[in-house]
Amino acid sequence: MTSPANNILIIGGGFSGMSAAIQLRKLGVAVEVAEIDPGWRSYGAGISLGGATLRAFKTLGILDQFLEHGAAADGVDLLLPHGQHLATLPTPRLAGDDVPGGGAIMRPVLAKILADATIASGAKVRLGCTFTSLRQHADGVEVSFTDGTVGNYDLVIGADGLYSKVRETLMPEAPKPRYSGQCVWRAVLPRPAEVERAMMWVGPKIKTGVNPVSRDRMYLFVTEDRADNVQIDPARFTDMLTDLLVPFAAPLMQQCRAQLQQMGADAQIVYRPLEALLIPQPWHRGRVVLIGDTVHATTPHMASGACIGIEDAIVLADELDGADTIEQALAGFEARRWERCRMVVENSSRLGEIEIAGGDKAEHSRIMHATHMALAAPI
């Protein structure tokens, strides 16, 4: 394996950044990860994952760890608020005939799996540290860090998320994240025996669901329309979330409601306004390239935000492997990623618009089906 970049800095130690470190180390290049959080923490409850994500895990080499610590199953059950079963959406087995087509895991657990793999890869990880300046020159990028050190790199990868400092530095003219008009609530609850796979109850204006994240836990999610992007006092989380579940008479939903009232803060309730971002290409300037949420943050309607960020890392490493120049590799990366990432961001946003407007359910179903089919294609 050869690469035109032999010394690479990744700014941001989230899912995309860690995946890039893991894949790039397979090329034998030197990799540093600069992560601003000294605890390298990942916040949040559960994260739902489709077959394309599990396929990416297999490429990274972490699929077995996911299957051990998360939960995987085939299909997604759709139900009405009172519990009547409507349909079971198929989830193709993209990671292999012996691997279920989807699943979920606690975000901190997945972050730990990726962090362990990053360290095991031999990448150098600098915690509590980020950049203060990027100065490009003919042979690379000189980076000054918050700890007072300076380094020179053949390539810098910005993977520092939706509110990326690298993006602001590199592309000050770029669009800003846009609030979608929806928010999502998540909580962690005990997993009843009857919850074997993802289940969703679809109401007129609110959608709720559960997904197993381990052998004994599941996460609850509720999507709510909210015109204004406002902060909410965490002290109100339990009451607000349980109120949203009142119209869902299905026994399991009412069981979840009772558990939330009993558990309170122990349910780890998370409230998140849904924002999206799609930066026009090119996603690089010289020898600095952006991946993941820095350039294509999506709402969770297709459960594919983490997927396309991790895929970015895999494709970037693939394009660097054997390329004659860094510019050639970055052009190849962007050409392979644009349509897939655009599709996920725009289709997810459209699903949210339909839900807010109470629009055409047939269009909603067509978009979901078409997106699932496209995600099944190789990257």
Score class of each variant (00 low, 15 high):
T2W: 15
A5H: 00
G12S: 03
G17P: 01
R25E: 00
R25K: 13
L27T: 05
L27F: 08
G28W: 10
G28N: 12
V31E: 01
V31L: 04
E35S: 03
G39M: 06
G39L: 00
R41A: 12
Y43I: 11
I47Y: 08
I47E: 14
L49M: 15
G50N: 12
G50F: 04
A52L: 14
T53N: 12
T53H: 13
A56L: 11
I62H: 06
H69P: 15
D74W: 13
D74V: 13
G75S: 12
L78W: 12
L80W: 11
Q84S: 14
L86G: 07
A87Y: 09
T88I: 13
L89P: 06
P90F: 02
T91C: 09
P92D: 05
L94F: 07
L94H: 07
L94K: 03
A95R: 06
G96H: 07
G101P: 05
L114C: 08
T118H: 02
T118S: 00
I119M: 07
A120Q: 14
S121E: 12
R126S: 12
R126L: 15
T132F: 06
S133M: 08
Q136H: 05
A138Q: 01
G148E: 03
T149E: 03
T149L: 04
N152E: 15
N152I: 09
L155N: 00
G158E: 06
G161Y: 01
V166E: 06
R167L: 00
E168L: 03
L170P: 04
E173A: 14
P175F: 00
P175K: 01
S180K: 05
V184R: 02
R186V: 10
V188A: 08
V188Y: 03
P192T: 10
A193M: 10
M199K: 12
M200G: 09
W201F: 05
V202K: 12
G203F: 06
P204H: 08
T208E: 06
G209N: 04
G209A: 10
V210M: 13
L220I: 00
A227T: 13
D233N: 09
F237N: 15
T238W: 15
L241D: 13
L241V: 14
V246I: 12
F248A: 02
F248V: 00
A249F: 10
P251V: 10
P251E: 11
M253H: 07
L260R: 10
A267G: 06
A267P: 02
V270G: 05
R272D: 12
A276K: 05
W283F: 07
G286I: 12
R287C: 14
V289G: 09
D293C: 03
T294L: 08
V295Y: 12
A297N: 07
T299M: 11
H301L: 01
M302A: 13
A303F: 09
A303S: 03
I310H: 02
I310W: 04
E311P: 04
D321K: 08
A323V: 04
A323M: 01
A323Y: 03
A323P: 02
D324K: 10
T325I: 00
Q328K: 05
A329F: 01
A335K: 15
A335W: 08
A335V: 04
A335Q: 15
W338M: 09
E339V: 02
E339K: 13
R340K: 01
N347P: 04
E353M: 07
I356R: 05
G359W: 02
A362R: 02
A374Q: 11
A376Q: 10
A377G: 09
